[in-house]
Design a binder for these strands. Structure first.
Length: 362
DNA sequence: ATCCAGGCTG
DNA sequence: CAGCCTGGAT
């Protein structure tokens, strides 16, 4: 580990003093100022947080001033910065320091972690910047820099990923320069090893960077997207004419590509279920049809979609077969023998529906 | 218009 | 592990 990380740490600590931004919360050991800046900078860009930092420090020069302020005042000053639980926790934390710590900031990672609004990142930041405790910060920048340089593909959103990166960072942090290392790796992530299109040709780390040397810069770090499940509502028409049925082959750009299902309308919500299937109006203009609505909504789960499907059975008299065929051709649907349906690839949802039809025929 | 980043809490 | 918010990117 030392052999691998040594050039990393060395290059990083060489790079930092020449490239660091001059920010007002740097170059201080005051835990109050460091804490205040870290809470404000959580989920917040420097440019947006800077004026708030100055405003807070002006109004509350020390932790007791903040503790003695009202929550209303704190919330008012925080206005516009977002994530307002940070402001409530900020105030509560200041009061707890006043009431239970004699107004003195706790000075270790573990004790800082007990305070409101201080998690592992912020505890490590304060412990290292203010008290030189050799504990590594792991924020979004650190994930990215370590994942790329060391070629780690573990999902950074997972718990195991977080532990793995924390272990690595804590293994390589120089015990004699924890503050400088922590500042350096975050600044490197913020300025050089940026999320999109980093300028790797100019990067001082490229010789030892796994991602650069293996063309993986754009795929690291791995972050598994929290897939938000989309709900969709399919209103199918199961159109029968004698022994034939109307099917369609699903095309590109959606689920079930190349499989077969039936003509359908997609609704924006289940409430629209009253609405008649749009294209049935069309064919009703040419022919008499019998529509058998069903109350049943099939539920079909995919990785990223939850589909609710409802089927209306439509009976077309055989004298209208040629008109139906003409309409189907125009729409790109097929009119096929019901028996042939067995041979076509179909989504599970459709198979289930067809199975239910067989049962109801018996 | 929609998507995304970003630590902590309960 | 979802929810919290905003501004910037697309």
């Amino acid at each position: 580990m030392i052999l691998i990380s040594d050039p990393f740490v060395h290059t990083l600590l060489e790079w930092y003093p020449h490239n660091k931004r001059d920010l007002p919360w740097r170059n201080t050991n005051n835990p109050y100022i460091i804490w205040l800046s870290e809470i404000i900078l959580q989920q917040t860009r420097v440019a947006q947080g800077l004026p708030y930092f100055e405003k807070f420090l002006e109004n509350f020069p020390n932790v007791e001033d903040l503790a003695n302020s009202s929550e209303e005042m704190v919330m008012r000053l925080w206005q516009g910065l977002g994530y307002y639980s940070r402001a409530r926790n900020l105030h509560r934390c200041a009061q707890d320091i006043r009431d239970f710590h004699s107004g003195i900031f706790p000075d270790s990672y573990q004790s800082l972690l007990q305070l409101k609004g201080i998690g592992s990142y912020t505890a490590a930041a304060i412990a290292s910047f203010a008290f030189n405790e050799p504990v590594a910060v792991v924020d979004g920048n650190v994930f990215r820099v370590l994942a790329r340089y060391f070629g780690i593909a573990t999902d950074i959103a997972s718990n195991t990923g977080k532990k793995e990166f924390e272990a690595l960072a804590n293994a390589i942090i120089p015990k004699d320069k924890p503050a400088e290392f922590n500042q350096a790796i975050m600044e490197f992530g913020a300025l050089q090893c940026v999320p999109k299109n980093p300028n790797c040709d100019q990067c001082p780390m490229k010789a030892g960077c796994f991602a650069f040397n293996n063309d993986l810069v754009h795929s690291l770090p791995v972050k598994i997207k929290k897939l938000k499940i989309k709900e969709r509502y399919f209103r199918y028409a199961f159109i029968l004419c004698e022994n034939e049925v109307v099917v369609r082959r699903r095309g590109e750009g959606d689920i079930w590509q190349g499989l077969h299902d039936f003509p359908m309308d997609e609704l924006s919500s289940q409430n629209e279920s009253e609405r008649q299937i749009g294209f049935l109006k069309e064919i009703q203009g040419f022919m008499t049809i019998y529509v058998n609505e069903s109350e049943k909504w099939y539920k079909h789960i995919l990785t990223h979609q939850r589909i609710f499907a409802n089927f209306a059975t439509v009976i077309v008299q055989k004298e209208y077969r040629s008109i139906l065929k003409e309409w189907a051709d125009k729409k790109g649907f097929q009119l096929i023998d019901f028996e042939k349906l067995e041979d076509l690839g179909k989504p599970r949802l459709i198979v289930k529906f067809l199975d239910d039809q067989k049962l109801s025929l018996n």
